[in-house]
């Protein structure tokens, strides 16, 4: 094991021609994943790590550190304290700007230097296998439950609950939102019939769909997902209608996976990492990760990233204000 690592380091050190950058890392780099081992953001950070290591994009070691406490607030708080240190990157989601709005955490989005949003995770509306057959039937069923229908989700006042409240408003229904620790937990609660639906990401529920305990009704995107192989005997991801097609007018709801540096880093350092992440996206390992987890690749950086953030913050702010979630 050690010899292997040593050999790899040696090869990397000797074969890498220094690219023309004003700044180069000179020691090991830490990736802070704002999720526990196995969580979506952890997989994201490790996929980037694997792409860099396997393609020798960097001649320094990379260590992934999990700081998932407090729904990721632990990782962000830690990163905030790293100001001026370009050897710590934090991997997160839209929580970077959403969490400070709705709970009293010790960081805000402006405490970090944005690098890029690299991938958008999709959301689908899932019901139990024997549940309503389409979105219209689902909305009817929820209306009939008269406010007692249950939506499960991961965490409170997070993307899942945000989407739930948007569904309520769009469809004119009321639901009870039950927060669990993770999407996987919500999926099991749905399989057991303890909740009526959830809005998991594809990778969180693909096994359950395959196994015939639950199925997606629609995807919150403007177009259908990429085809890929069939999941069940008859259906694959591209057979799932968009929510607008199915009669629920929420055109686009996604979860960006984002990378940040601390504050007080130089423009050269930022540029180095932006370029590195761009190279990562060209690797086969990365493409494999995006495809297997049924996410959508994007690359938002600089002004495009800031614009996206501003838009998303407005949307979150609106719902949060209506729901009375905003921290005073």
């Amino acid at each position: 094991m050690r010899t292997l690592k040593f050999a790899a380091a040696l090869i990397a050190a000797t074969t890498l021609a220094a690219p023309a950058f004003a700044w180069q890392p000179t020691k090991a780099i830490e990736f802070v994943a704002t999720a526990g081992p196995g969580g979506g953001t952890d997989n994201f950070a490790r996929a980037v790590q694997a792409a860099i290591v396997k393609n020798k994009l960097l001649d320094q070691a990379i260590v992934v550190v999990n700081k998932g406490g407090g729904s990721g607030a632990e990782g962000y708080t830690y990163e905030k304290g790293m100001a001026g240190d370009p050897y710590h990157l934090v991997f997160g989601t839209s929580n970077t700007w959403q969490q400070p709005m709705v709970s009293k955490v010790a960081f805000k989005q402006s405490d970090f230097t944005p690098i890029a949003a690299m991938v958008q995770d999709e959301f689908l509306l899932w019901v139990k296998q024997d549940g309503p057959k389409d979105v219209k039937a689902y909305i009817e069923a929820m209306k009939a439950r008269n406010g007692a229908g249950k939506m499960g989700g991961a965490q409170s006042k997070d993307t899942d609950e945000l989407l739930t409240r948007m569904i309520e408003k769009t469809a004119g229904i009321k639901m009870i939102y039950v927060p669990f620790k993770s999407g996987a937990e919500a999926a099991v609660q749905l399989a057991g019939g303890h909740v009526d639906s959830h809005v998991n990401n594809p990778s969180e529920s693909i096994g359950q769909w395959k196994g015939g305990t639950q199925r997606p009704l629609c995807v919150f995107n403007t177009k259908r997902l990429a085809a890929g192989p069939k999941i069940t005997a008859t259906e694959g991801w591209s057979d799932i209608p968009t929510c607008v097609e199915a009669g629920l007018n929420i055109p686009l709801f996604q979860q960006p996976r984002t990378v940040w540096l601390p504050l007080k880093v130089t423009p050269e350092q930022t540029a180095f990492y932006v370029d590195l992440m761009k190279k990562v996206q060209a690797t086969p390992e990365w493409k494999d990760y995006v495809e297997k987890s049924s996410q959508t690749q994007v690359f938002l950086t600089g002004a495009a990233f800031t614009d996206y953030m501003t838009q998303d913050m407005e949307r979150v702010h609106k719902v949060a204000e209506e729901q009375g979630w905003l921290v005073k």
Partner: peptide
């Protein structure tokens, strides 16, 4: 102590920000 799953609120951190992790 730390982030509460059900409400998403931060609890009992006694003014120590890092305790958000519990």
């Amino acid at each position: 102590i730390g982030m509460d799953t059900v409400s998403g609120q931060v609890r009992l951190t006694m003014g120590i920000d890092e305790l958000v992790k519990g």
